[in-house]
Design a protein around this nucleic acid. Structure first.
Length: 188
DNA sequence: CCTGGGATTTTCT
DNA sequence: GAAAATCCCAGGA
C-alpha cells in the first residue's frame, strides 16, 4: 500500500472552481471497518453562490441545503429522485453557499463502477449518515493526494453541467470538469 | 442511433 | 401535488 497524504484544510479554502479542477486525479477513501474503498476522481461539477439557479441554495437556506452554507471541507449528501445519493464537497467561507458535486471516479479497488453521481455513491456506500462529515478530520471519508500521478491542465476538459436545463442562463456555464480520455467519465 | 418512462422519496409550493 | 444536480431498460427508426 502506498502512503497517502491527506488533503489539508488549506486545499478546501481555495476558489471553488480551482478546487473543482484540482480534485481531478485525487483519491477518495471511504473506510468501512477495516476495509478501505479507493477511487480516483475523474469528474466534478461546481455549484456556486446564491444566484446559481442550478444550485439547491438558490432558493435560500433550508433544512436540506444548510450544509452548503457551512465551512469548506464539509460533505453535503442528498437524495435525488427518491433513490440515488449525491456526494458534494462544500467550499468557500461559512454562509456562502457553494459545493462541488463528485460525478465520477475511476475504481482503484472498487467492485462497482462509479461513472455517475448516483453510481458513485452506491459504489462507495455513501448515504445520509455521512452528511455533514468533516473531510479534513473524518476517519470514514476523506481525500488524499494521488501518489502516482500529477494531472496537467491540458488533461482537463471543461463542459456544461448535466441535468440542469431549468437553470436559465446558468445552464450553459462551463462548470463541469473532467479528465480527457478517461473512460469512467459519465458523459463526454 | 434515438426517445420516453418508471422506480422511489425528499423537498418545497 | 409536482419536481428533482439519476439511472436503467424498453421500443422505434
Amino acid at each position: 500500500m502506498p502512503k497517502f497524504k491527506r488533503l489539508p484544510a488549506k486545499f478546501y479554502h481555495q476558489n471553488t472552481f480551482k478546487i473543482a479542477e484540482e480534485l481531478l486525479g485525487k483519491f477518495i477513501i471511504r473506510k468501512i471497518g477495516k476495509r478501505a474503498l479507493i477511487g480516483k476522481i475523474v469528474e466534478s461539477e461546481a455549484y456556486y453562490g446564491p444566484n446559481d439557479l442550478a444550485s439547491h441554495a438558490s432558493r435560500g437556506k433550508t433544512a436540506r441545503t444548510k450544509i452548503m452554507f457551512d465551512q469548506a471541507g464539509t460533505a453535503y449528501i442528498y437524495l435525488i429522485y427518491g433513490m440515488y445519493y449525491c456526494f458534494n464537497i462544500v467550499t468557500e467561507a461559512k454562509d456562502f453557499p457553494a459545493a462541488i458535486l463528485i460525478r465520477a471516479a475511476e475504481p482503484i479497488n472498487l467492485s462497482k463502477k462509479a461513472n455517475g453521481p448516483g453510481k458513485f455513491c452506491r459504489a462507495f456506500k455513501i448515504d445520509k449518515n455521512l452528511n455533514g462529515e468533516n473531510l479534513i478530520t473524518s476517519k470514514k471519508l476523506y481525500l488524499v493526494e494521488n501518489p502516482n500521478e500529477k494531472i496537467k491542465k491540458s488533461q482537463i476538459k471543461k463542459a456544461k453541467r448535466i441535468g440542469v436545463d431549468y437553470a436559465g442562463k446558468y445552464k450553459n456555464k462551463l462548470w463541469r470538469f473532467y479528465l480527457k480520455n478517461n473512460q469512467f467519465v459519465s458523459k463526454k
